[in-house]
Write a protein that binds this DNA or RNA. Structure first.
Length: 747
DNA sequence: GGATTGTGTATTTTT
DNA sequence: TACACAATCC
């Protein structure tokens, strides 16, 4: 057996096909004997490959059968990929592995033993939206002002508690906090009780109930401890306490656990992830083997140089030194732009240049810190007709029409799903408004039964007015009929029928708003998606656990996404936008988390740079449009932390000079942003050089800085010229783009 | 009960 | 700016 750290090169001839092409460290990790193993794998070092190959290797050696393997990932995509690669390595389909996300496996286990924690096996998995509506009801029921104590905040608090593995009774008094004057735990308790009567779970519960299950039912725990001969964990640095406890319970008997991760890529502490888990692995599993993967196969030398240097500014890390044999390649290009519009224009031009050079757009990505930054890029790309996709934007299953349709299906599958029923009871309109609903709720609460049960009873009485009573009894009867259909008709057919007969499709057909056709398309797509599943419940499980968009990989588009979304991906060319203090590192994160948060932001920057294979751009803008008004900012401290020898600092001729001299640009809060901007950079010299002269237009037309008059907007000053379009800061009307022929020069 | 207008507030990051 | 929610009116 190969010793970690002292790998013996195997004679090539004896190497089985699935181990071919691995380097010594990778091979050591893959072939390490049973027992605790930590693989510290830097970005681009073949982490996923090692994990999947080790799994395949174990199966091939007969150390575990598929049904005895537990392999957990964070994303559905990673799980899918892992499954595919294992099958590729084994050259056959593999069935029965417990391979999936923490949540999906948690759900799978919970469904088998639901009654042990006070649920029924058919429990519903609530999404965030349902959760918030429920919390809102509870906050109101507690006579608290929803404005003052927003459900969102409470949801966040509860989620963090669950991430730490705390059921309501286990929340330490010190953690009660200020929310609702310290009543947050009472609300948490009420929330859990309500979930139980609804036979529902939220995301956090999937693991929390597992923990309760394992702690209170030793026989169940033992069953799984015996079953799982091998436990493998991807992205271990992102595990939270609940996940960590869960894993430890499952692995503590056999101790055959492989964790793969990179402490430098831990970027989810805000979601409860504990870098400590990975830093502590060797204490948790004494005698653990540790393998470091430091050879990077992804990026060129300059890119790796930048990333490596940047991350050395962090103090709490295992410490790895990535290296590569690759060429130095192109230096990382760092560009300072005037504003976010200019930033987007810059990226647009670079992308067009790539296109002209014959490179596919799908190899390029714009990575940003926060969602709002995608806007200017989208606007620009639309303007120049550049195909792009935004990953992580509004998701398919979160669209209102899809959620409505799914609510119908949920009520069919689970009549007591009150949240689903409430959602669609009056969609389309059936004359069942607030007052009827209030009546129903009161009745259900008094009887401690579900809304559905309340409806069934109430329609038999004359407590309701004839109209709503009629509507309700019709609705109940219709659902009853659909439920009968569930037994006989295929899921797809049922879905179609429901959408038709409920009048839901008709509702959108009658809608004349511009987005109605799109919504109808989405509904068709939903019907199609349902068709992929055997049963309705199978589909619903998928919907609650797999909330992701599937993107068509064949179309050639540039990608825009957040840095978080980009983890685990790679692109030939990467644009990192918005490297400004406040944006990145994010001010709010800094305020909340202090130095630890700064380090996390820096890891995020590291993740960003290491996504790129060959080309990387770092961009920052002096001014940024933020909901109302402009904010000017300084270049991110991360820019200063990039090593000059691996970077090229750019400015483009013309733009800097023009902008600097043009007065009255976005409102200045304190002095000239560009001056501050450069002053802050004085150590390395200005990125955006000040040039004294304004270069007049050759044709004697409109110049930057010129005063003009516009019939509608009044007086203003030209900020930029783009062909016949002028970018003008009007004295009264703000900044606008107008066609040159509509303005006249003022002497 | 439903539609319309007005007001307030929000922008991290997501399984 | 843009959306969600509430108050108000029909």
């Amino acid at each position: 057996m190969t010793e970690p750290g002292l790998p013996q090169p195997m004679p090539v001839a004896t190497l089985p096909p699935h181990l071919e092409g691995l380097n010594a460290e990778q091979l050591a990790a893959v072939t390490a004997p049973d027992g605790p193993l930590l693989v510290l794998a830097g970005a681009g070092t073949g982490k996923t490959r090692v994990l999947t190959t080790r799994l395949a290797h174990m199966l091939l050696e007969g150390r575990a059968r598929p049904g005895e393997v537990l392999a957990v990932t964070f994303t559905n995509k990673a799980a899918r990929e892992m499954n595919e690669r294992v099958e590729q390595l084994l050259r056959r389909p593999v069935q029965g592995m417990w391979l999936g996300t923490f949540h999906s496996i948690g759900a799978r286990i919970l469904r088998r033993h639901a009654e042990r924690v006070g649920l029924e096996s058919g429990f519903t998995i609530l999404d965030t939206d349902d959760q918030l509506r429920l919390l809102k009801q509870l906050i109101e029921a507690a006579d608290l002002d929803v404005k003052k104590w927003p459900p969102r905040i409470l949801g966040g608090i509860i989620q963090r508690w669950k991430d730490r593995g705390w059921a309501p009774d286990h929340v330490p008094t010190a953690e009660y906090g200020e929310f609702a004057l310290g009543r947050s735990v009472a609300l948490y308790k009420a929330y859990q009780a309500r979930l139980r009567t609804l036979n529902a779970c939220d995301f956090g519960d999937l693991l929390l109930h597992n923990l309760t299950l394992f702690k209170e039912h030793a026989d169940v725990l033992e069953e799984y401890q015996r079953r799982f001969k091998a436990v493998l964990v991807d992205e271990y640095q992102d595990t939270n306490v609940a996940q960590y406890l869960w894993l430890r319970l499952l692995a503590q008997v056999r101790k055959n656990v492989t964790c793969v991760g990179d402490d430098d890529q831990s970027i989810y502490s805000w979601r409860g992830a504990e870098v400590g888990n990975i830093l502590r692995f060797e204490q948790d599993f004494p005698g653990a083997a540790v393998v470091r993967l430091e050879r990077n196969y992804r990026s060129t030398g300059h890119i790796l140089g930048c990333a490596s240097r940047l991350i050395t500014h962090n103090e709490s890390r295992h410490g790895k030194t990535l290296w590569t044999d690759d060429v130095a390649g192109e230096p990382v290009r760092v560009a300072g732009l005037w504003d976010d519009e200019e930033e987007a224009r810059f990226v647009g031009e670079e992308l067009e240049a790539l296109q002209r050079a014959g490179e596919p757009l799908r190899g390029a990505a714009v990575l940003v810190r926060a969602g709002f930054q995608t806007r200017s890029f989208e606007e620009r790309f639309i303007a120049i007709g550049l195909p792009y996709r935004v990953v992580g934007g509004p998701r398919f299953y979160e669209r209102a029409e899809i959620r409505d349709a799914i609510a119908y299906l949920r009520v069919i599958a689970q009549p007591d799903d009150d949240l689903a029923l409430e959602r669609i009871v009056n969609v389309p309109r059936r004359g069942l408004g607030d007052s009827t609903l209030a009546h129903l709720r009161a009745y259900a609460r008094a009887r401690d039964c579900s809304l559905h049960a309340a409806v069934r009873e109430l329609v038999e009485t004359d407590e309701l007015k004839p109209k709503p009573r009629r509507a309700l009894s019709d609705l109940v009867a219709t659902f009853e009929r659909w439920r009968g259909l569930m037994e006989t008709a295929p899921a797809r057919e049922l879905c179609e029928t429901v959408l038709e007969e409920s009048g839901y499709v008709a509702m959108w057909q009658a809608d004349k708003s511009p987005d109605a056709p799109g919504r109808l398309d989405n509904l068709k797509e939903l019907v199609h998606a349902v068709g992929e599943f055997e049963s309705l419940s199978g589909f619903l499980e998928h919907v609650s656990l797999v909330m992701e968009n599937v993107t068509d990989p064949t179309s050639d588009m540039a990608t825009i996404m957040t840095l978080h979304g980009a983890k685990g991906l790679e692109f030939d060319t990467v644009f990192l936008g918005g490297w400004e203090e406040g944006v990145f590192p994010n001010q709010r994160a800094l305020d909340e988390g202090g130095r630890a948060a700064l380090e996390e932001e820096r890891r995020l920057a590291y993740v960003g740079i290491t996504r790129s294979r060959r080309r990387c751009f770092v961009l920052f803008a002096a001014n940024r449009r933020l909901y109302q008004g402009w904010v000017s900012s300084l270049p991110s401290r991360f820019v200063d932390e990039l090593p000059a020898e691996h970077c090229e600092f750019l400015h483009r001729d013309g733009f800097a000079a023009n902008r600097l001299r043009s007065p009255g640009l976005p409102p200045r809060r304190d002095g000239d942003p560009l001056a501050r901007f450069n002053a802050a950079r004085s150590r390395k010299g200005p990125i955006v050089e000040a040039v004294a002269e304004i270069v007049p237009d050759a044709d004697g037309g409109f110049d930057i800085g010129m005063r003009i008059f516009h019939d509608k907007f009044g007086y203003g000053r030209i900020e930029a010229v783009d062909g016949d379009k002028l970018d003008i800061a009007f004295d009264k009307a703000g900044r606008k783009k107008v066609i040159a022929s509509f303005v006249q020069a003022v002497p």
